[in-house]
Amino acid sequence: MIENPRADELVDAVAKWIDSIRPSLPPRDAFLARVAANVLSVVKREILLGPQADAAAVERLSQLLGVSGDVNTLNAVLCERLRSGDMDAETPGLLAALKANITDQIAIDQPNYSATGS
C-alpha cells in the first residue's frame, strides 16, 4: 500500500478543503458541505479503525457461535440463530459480544455519540 500519501490523508485533505469553502456557500449548500465533511470523517475513521474492528468482531463472533467465517457471514449466522430462537438475550456472552462490536462501530460512525444512561 502506498504510504505517501496514505488514503486517510487524502480523505482528510478533501475534508479540510470543504471546511475552508463552507463559509462562502449559501445556507443549504453550507449545510450539505458540513454533511459531506462528516461523511469524509467517517471514511477516514473506517480506513484507520475498520480492519481492527472487523478482526475483533470476527474473533468475538466465532467464539460465540463456534463457527468461522468473515464478519458478514458470522453476522448472518448469528441473525439466523436469533430468528430461530436458538439464541436470545439470555444466551451467555451474547450481549457482551454485541456490545463490544457495536462500541467499535460507533467509534467509526459517531465517536461523540453519548450512550451512557440510555
Binding site: V35, V39, V42, A89, L95, K99, I102, Q110, A115, S118
Partner: peptide, 18 residues
C-alpha cells in the same frame, strides 16, 4: 450519511437489553 446513524440505535438497544 443517515445510514450511519443505525449504530446509535443499536448501542442504545444493547444498553436497554443489558
Amino acid at each position: 450519511m443517515i445510514g450511519r446513524r443505525v449504530s446509535e440505535t443499536e448501542i442504545d438497544l444493547v444498553n436497554l437489553l443489558e
